[in-house]
Amino acid sequence: MKKIIAPTLLLFIFVFFASSFTSERMALHAKAKKTVQDTLKTDSIPVRLKYKPYKKAVHASYYHDRFNGRKTASGKRFDNSKLTAAHKKLPFGTAIRVTNPVNNKSVVVTVIDRGPFTRGREIDLSKKAFMEIAHAKGRGFINVNLEIVKE
């Protein structure tokens, strides 16, 4: 009987400590993810990003799923699950912070395409970027503020 109790007790202690370690680790990871949102890692040194205001209260929409896999104007393949955008004038590779003033959520996207070609719209976001900042998921457009990321 003693031969069975000792290994069972050891297994219980191991599982208990392993699960508490995992939950602490997950909590630290979630906290780190929030604090790293506005930092850029270069050579493993976090650098605080600086923003230059570009435009306020502009009309933003998102790409339809049918554009997934197609080549963009920059030559890259479009992927709706990445944080990318299309802008008419900004150079390819420009990082832009897009902020929804209603809920103050923001996301940093990279310009990889030209567009949108609908009058009154300033920027087209990938679906992932749009859904991260949208306050009403049922609409396909929102008014946002744009800031250019300065390194």
Rank of each mutant, 00 (worst) to 15 (best):
I123C: 01
V111P: 03
T118L: 12
A85R: 04
T99Q: 06
F78N: 05
S81M: 05
A95C: 09
R77Q: 13
K88I: 09
R114K: 13
G93A: 15
S74V: 09
T118G: 00
Y63W: 09
K82L: 15
T94F: 00
R114F: 02
Y62Q: 04
R114D: 11
G120D: 14
Y63F: 14
K105L: 00
A60C: 06
R66F: 15
V107T: 09
S74W: 11
D79A: 14
G69A: 07
F92Y: 14
K82R: 15
L83Q: 06
E122R: 13
R77C: 04
T84R: 10
P91I: 10
F78D: 06
V108P: 00
K76Y: 06
K88F: 00
I123N: 03
V108Q: 02
R119I: 06
N80P: 10
T84I: 11
F78V: 11
V108W: 02
S61I: 05
F67N: 06
K82E: 13
K82H: 11
D65L: 13
L90S: 02
V109Q: 06
S74G: 09
I96Y: 01
K105F: 00
V107D: 01
F92V: 12
G93I: 11
V98K: 02
K76N: 13
T94Q: 07
D113S: 04
P91K: 12
K56F: 10
G93L: 15
F117A: 00
S61M: 04
F92T: 06
R70S: 15
F67S: 03
T94Y: 06
S81I: 04
I123R: 01
T72I: 08
A57D: 15
A95D: 08
G115R: 07
R70D: 13
A60D: 08
K76T: 13
A86H: 07
R97V: 02
N100V: 01
V102P: 01
F92A: 09
F67C: 05
V111S: 05
T110D: 02
I112G: 09
A60K: 01
V102R: 09
E122T: 15
K56L: 14
H87M: 07
A95P: 00
K71N: 11
I123K: 00
G75W: 08
S61P: 02
A85L: 09
T84F: 11
D113A: 05
